[in-house]
Design a protein around this nucleic acid. Structure first.
Lengths: 333, 333
DNA sequence: TTGTAGGCGTTATCAA
DNA sequence: TTGATAACGCCTACAA
């Protein structure tokens, strides 16, 4: 079932059939009607690969993420899909998990299948970029370290958000504020840690190595982290979990230890996932509009597709806002 | 940067270059080495669309879901991606949300871009299938109503899971068990409702229309549903929320109303999302291995790709298991 | 307004 | 073992 079949059925050449089906004005209205009818009758759909080959447009953007687990990635994808769907594009999804194919292969395999790329990976380097992507290929980096990479990028205001959280906790009178850190090598994790330390400094609090607990953004790490903190001789009075998943784990651990939140110990999270307000106690968190991050990334890739020259290599920051709920112990105003 | 450039650089024909790069044994080892070197030096990657055109294989499977919001879809996608990645395939993602392009267009747009399809949509009919898909095109349906559709399908044991939940609640002594239903027109929602009613019957309990509350699988619906139930003169003593998101909303509403769970009212959910065990109280739920559902769907599409004849049109059911935690008030054994 | 023909980048077929 | 050459399905000059 190709356009030749349609052309034959309609009694025209393939060129005419193509024009008729592609809204070209170089076709008589009558002819178009006949061709359309034939196409409908034969249930014709154009062959994507063939079309891509000649037009060098795939109408697809690639989405390469480090993982697909959890509400964060899910929302990023949703935002991207929402945006690209508006212009009839698709998402070609790929995760670069450890154990899967290496990043380079993943990137390579996308050539000729996507028009642009939304990429989130700590491993992506300028060298790799040069090796795997054609010069000028539209790429938007998500939450990657600032570097000399020749690509636009989008990040979350991790530093500011974390700093705001710590300052808020300090303003509530907490002197010993612990942090449960994110995954090693993760850009967001590093920035949130930096914000935490900056906040401590501004509040005149002493940083303490024993209050910085390793984590990986999973619920179990929050649980374990909180338990570790409870074993300290000089316990913290507040815990900043650097994402909500870990905050949930921490809440669980504290409850299990018979401690009340926020009376005995305060907790704050990061991301403000939809569930945060439904927790008990409702979770104070740093709000991030994750799907908007995805939408914006997609929008920038799409706009790079429009104009060929003048690539937009800017670094853009998605703002964060502190959402105060009961878990930090702030009085209702 | 095409294979012709590589061939030229290596001093061979494109045919030889192609063979060298594709592990064909019709190539001298020396030649292969030379070609590989040239390809590396030139950073050559094959063009997916061109390759697809001639091989009629895209190494991609399409994933069409009704929405991308929430942990359910996220896990399905993760499972699919995990499976297809093992054989070097990609996922082409698309959501058929209301407001977006109609399902038919979405399906059409995938022709020539995917080798098979994992499809979840209440709107998909046999007629549409015939109109949009080539005969014998590999499709696995997810959670769709049983029908005369010429495709294999995968469903969750909704009925059995819901029934088990209700029987469990009844065994705990509850006589008035309410349900917060899922989205209208949703297959899972209908099946869970059916299981609920069957469970009531088996337990010798009277069904009551006022105990069947409308919902849509969102947290807010659980909240609203629970509030509605609390307004009843003859309150239920247990609420079965047909997914965990709504159970979370219901927990929130009950707490807000000053009721204790499970002492004043028991709650059960469905799906057993990772977060369920971290809630307060920990949520009794019907466990579903969602990512396994995705993996299995992908596996079936892939295996359909292998053998051309003998399509597997079977209907497969993913089992569910009741996970008892504190929210239903069962004694620890 | 229509048709012919060339080419997008690749692999498959056939000779050499 | 290699090289010409013909597809794959489509779009788009160019010619009519």
């Amino acid at each position: 079932m190709t356009i030749r079949d349609v052309a034959r059925a309609a009694g025209v050449s393939t060129a005419t059939a193509s024009r008729a089906l592609n809204e070209s004005h170089l076709v008589a209205e009558d002819t178009r009607t006949v061709v359309r009818a034939a196409a409908d009758r034969l249930h014709y759909s154009p062959h994507g690969a063939a079309r891509s080959l000649i037009t060098s447009r795939t109408h697809t953007i690639g989405v390469l993420l480090p993982d697909l687990y959890g509400e964060f990635f899910s929302e990023v994808i949703r935002g991207i899909d929402q945006r690209v769907q508006q212009v009839g594009y698709h998402c070609l999804l790929s995760s670069a998990r450890r154990g899967g194919p290496p990043l380079e292969a993943a990137l390579r395999s996308m050539r000729g299948r996507v028009d642009g790329l939304v990429l989130m990976s700590p491993e992506f380097t300028g060298d790799l970029s040069r090796r795997t992507l054609p010069a000028g290929f539209p790429v938007i980096l998500l939450n990657s370290a600032p570097a000399e990479l020749p690509h636009g990028s989008l990040i979350v205001a991790n530093f500011e958000g974390a700093r705001a959280m710590v300052l808020h906790l300090a303003a509530l009178g907490h002197r010993r504020v612990a942090i449960i850190k994110g995954a090693e090598g993760n850009f967001d994790a590093a920035e949130r840690l930096r914000g935490y330390r900056a906040g401590l400094g501004e509040a005149g609090l002493e940083p303490a190595p024993e209050l910085e607990i390793a984590g990986d953004f999973g619920e179990a790490a929050g649980d374990a982290g909180a338990r570790a903190l409870l074993r300290l001789v000089d316990r913290p009075t507040a815990i900043f979990a650097t994402n909500d998943g870990m905050a949930i784990g921490a809440l669980f651990a504290l409850r299990d230890a018979g401690l009340r939140v926020p009376e005995d110990i305060a907790i704050g999270g990061f991301d403000d996932i939809p569930m945060a307000r439904y927790l008990e106690p409702a979770l104070t968190s740093v709000h991030v509009d994750i799907s908007a991050l995805g939408e914006r990334a997609a929008a920038r890739v799409l706009s790079a597709l429009e104009r060929t020259a003048d690539p937009d290599l800017s670094r853009e920051t998605m703002p964060t806002t502190l959402v105060v709920r009961r878990s930090c112990g702030a009085r209702r105003s």
